[in-house]
Amino acid sequence: MRFKEYIESLPNQRYEEVLKLSKLCRVNESTVYRWLRGDFTPDPLKRKVISDYLNIPEKELWPDV
């Protein structure tokens, strides 16, 4: 499941999950939304943090990287 697909699968918790991810990665919420839109991809360290937090392999979240 790609990163965007995972977040979109959380209809009632989407905003809370974005907040948690922004705090974990120490970025602004708008940065997480840019990742979701595909404007750019998180750097390798942030991808690792997100992957560990979601317990989904990094290659599954971002297969094109």
Rank of each mutant, 00 (worst) to 15 (best):
Leu24Val: 03
Asn28Phe: 03
Ile56Thr: 08
Val49Ile: 15
Tyr15Cys: 07
Asp52His: 11
Thr41Ser: 15
Glu17Asp: 07
Glu17Gly: 04
Thr41Tyr: 07
Lys20Tyr: 05
Thr31Gln: 01
Thr41Gly: 09
Pro57His: 08
Leu54Met: 12
Leu45Trp: 11
Asn12Arg: 06
Glu29Ala: 09
Val18Met: 09
Pro11Ala: 08
Arg2Gly: 05
Asp52Met: 10
Ile56Gln: 09
Lys48Asp: 15
Glu58Gly: 03
Glu60Phe: 05
Lys59Cys: 07
Leu19Thr: 10
Tyr15Phe: 08
Tyr6Cys: 06
Tyr53Glu: 12
Asp43Gln: 14
Ser22Lys: 00
Arg14Phe: 00
Asp43Ala: 13
Ser22His: 01
Glu60Val: 13
Arg47Tyr: 03
Val32Gln: 01
Leu36Trp: 03
Phe3Ile: 09
Val32Asp: 03
Asn12Glu: 13
Lys4Phe: 04
Pro11Thr: 11
Ser51Pro: 02
Asp43Phe: 09
Glu60Cys: 05
Tyr15Gln: 13
Ser30Met: 10
Asp39Ile: 12
Glu29Pro: 01
Ser51Val: 07
Ser30Cys: 08
Arg34Met: 11
Leu61Val: 05
Lys20Val: 11
Leu24Ser: 02
Lys20Leu: 07
Met1His: 08
Gly38Phe: 04
Arg14Val: 08
Asp52Tyr: 01
Val49Asn: 09
Ser51Trp: 04
Ser22Asn: 03
Arg14Met: 13
Ile50His: 01
Arg34Lys: 12
Tyr53Met: 06
Asn55Pro: 00
Ile56Tyr: 01
Asn12Pro: 03
Leu24Asn: 02
Asp52Gln: 15
Phe3Cys: 06
Pro11Trp: 00
Asn55Gly: 05
Asn55Ile: 06
Glu29Val: 14
Asn12Ala: 11
Leu24Pro: 02
Arg47Phe: 00
Asp43Thr: 10
Thr31Ala: 01
Ile50Arg: 01
Val32Thr: 04
Ser9Asn: 06
Leu24Asp: 04
Val27Pro: 03
Ser9Phe: 02
Leu10Pro: 00
Thr31Arg: 02
Asn12Tyr: 06
Asp52Leu: 10
Tyr6Asn: 06
Glu5Met: 09
Val27Gln: 00
Arg14Asn: 08
Leu61Ser: 03
Tyr33Lys: 07
Arg34His: 07
Pro42His: 00
Ile7Phe: 12
Val18His: 04
Phe40Met: 07
Arg37Ser: 15
Tyr53Asn: 13
Arg34Tyr: 02
Lys46Ala: 05
Ile56Ala: 09
Lys46Cys: 08
Met1Asp: 10
Glu29Asn: 15
Arg26Ser: 15
Leu45Gly: 09
Tyr33Asn: 11
Met1Arg: 08
Glu17Leu: 10
Glu5Asn: 14
Thr41Arg: 04
Asp39Tyr: 12
Trp62Met: 07
Glu16Val: 08
Glu60Asn: 10
Glu8Met: 11
Glu60Trp: 03
Pro42Lys: 02
Val65Glu: 14
Asn28Val: 04
Trp62Val: 04
Ile7Tyr: 03
Leu45Glu: 15
Pro44His: 03
Met1Ala: 13
Arg26Lys: 15
Leu21Asp: 00
Glu5Ala: 09
Pro63Ile: 07
Tyr33Asp: 12
